Amino acid sequence: MDESRQSSSGGVGAVLRKAAPPPALCGFLLLLALIFTVSYAVGVGAGPVAPGMHGTSTSGDGSGGPDDTGDMDDMHGGHG
């Protein structure tokens, strides 16, 4: 009777061990999340990369966008 209880409880433990990811993978993902968190914090602390840079804007101040063609206004798609 005791053997049947041990085999049934051992089967559940074996299934849980097979379903769980390997400890090395968990450690790697934890380290990766830590590195990204530290990197983000350093980036926020450093501030913008250029003076006056405050993110993207959708206003028509000439900062680029879907209607901005740059220096290619005279091109009409023809060859030659």
Rank of each mutant, 00 (worst) to 15 (best):
S63E: 12
S63T: 09
V44S: 04
S39R: 01
V44Y: 13
D61F: 04
G55R: 08
R5Q: 12
G70T: 00
P22I: 00
Y40S: 00
P21W: 12
D2K: 04
G64R: 05
G10W: 00
P23H: 05
L32N: 03
V15R: 09
M75R: 05
A24D: 09
D2N: 09
T37W: 14
Q6C: 02
T56R: 12
S7N: 07
T37S: 09
V38M: 09
G13F: 15
A46W: 15
H79Y: 10
L32H: 08
L30C: 03
V49Q: 06
R5H: 04
P66Y: 14
M75P: 00
V42Y: 05
D74L: 12
Q6Y: 11
M75A: 03
L16D: 01
D74E: 15
G10F: 06
A20R: 12
P21A: 14
V44F: 10
D68F: 15
A19D: 00
V44N: 05
G11N: 11
G11E: 02
M53I: 00
V49N: 06
G60I: 06
C26H: 04
S7K: 14
G80D: 04
M53G: 01
P22R: 14
G70V: 05
S8E: 11
G64T: 09
M75S: 05
C26S: 09
L16V: 13
F36C: 03
C26R: 10
G52E: 02
H76E: 05
F28Q: 03
A14L: 08
S39I: 01
L32Q: 11
A24P: 01
A33E: 10
G60M: 13
K18G: 01
G45W: 08
P51H: 08
L29A: 02
T58I: 09
G77S: 06
H76P: 01
P51K: 13
L29T: 06
I35W: 10
G64P: 01
D74R: 11
L32V: 09
V38E: 02
G62N: 12
L25I: 06
P22Q: 11
D68H: 12
S59F: 10
V12S: 05
S39M: 06
S4C: 02
S4I: 11
F28K: 08
G62I: 07
A46M: 15
D71Y: 14
T56I: 12
P66G: 11
A24E: 15
S63N: 15
S9Y: 04
V38A: 14
A50N: 09
H79D: 03
V38S: 04
A14P: 00
D74I: 05
V49M: 05
D61T: 14
T69I: 10
D67H: 08
H76Q: 10
T56N: 04
S57N: 06
S39H: 04
L30Q: 04
A19S: 08
G45Q: 02
R17E: 07
G47I: 02
A24L: 05
L30S: 05
G52H: 08
G62Y: 12
P21R: 06
D68E: 10
